[in-house]
């Protein structure tokens, strides 16, 4: 029988991906890069879901990943439309130069 990788390794990999994504959100100023870092974080959670689903031999986790992907697609459409509207009004997409909602 083929020996598989222990599940802890998948969890460690997904934790590292989540760290990279959160560092990207907190350090970058370009709104599109922040958006891509959020996608990395969503994907790390998806990897956790898939590894738990596989090691439990269950379908439920994979269905949740399916839903997360649908929400990510909706988020991509609306988020990029917001970035375009922001660029049209402010001529910048650097989040530190947009302080409209900051008091």
């Amino acid at each position: 029988m083929l020996i598989d990788v222990p599940q802890e390794y998948y969890l460690i990999l997904s934790a590292m991906m989540f760290v990279i994504g959160s560092v990207g959100v907190l350090t970058r100023r370009n709104a599109i890069i922040i958006f891509m870092s959020i996608e990395i974080m969503l994907n790390s959670v998806n990897l956790t879901f898939v590894s738990f689903a596989a090691f439990m031999g269950d379908t439920a986790g994979q269905i949740f990943v399916f839903f997360v992907m649908a929400v990510a697609a909706a988020e991509a459409a609306v988020g990029l439309a917001i970035v375009l509207a922001l660029f049209r009004n402010k001529k910048t997409i650097y989040v530190d130069e947009v302080s409209l909602m900051k008091w």
Partner: peptide, 26 residues
């Protein structure tokens, strides 16, 4: 988070892991 996943790495015990056969169907 680095400390969190190093503690997780310390807890790796199962050296031979097997995916259950129903995961192929799932």
């Amino acid at each position: 988070l680095i400390t969190q996943f190093t503690t997780m790495y310390m807890g790796v015990s199962s050296k031979n892991a097997f995916l259950p056969p129903q995961s192929i169907e799932a």
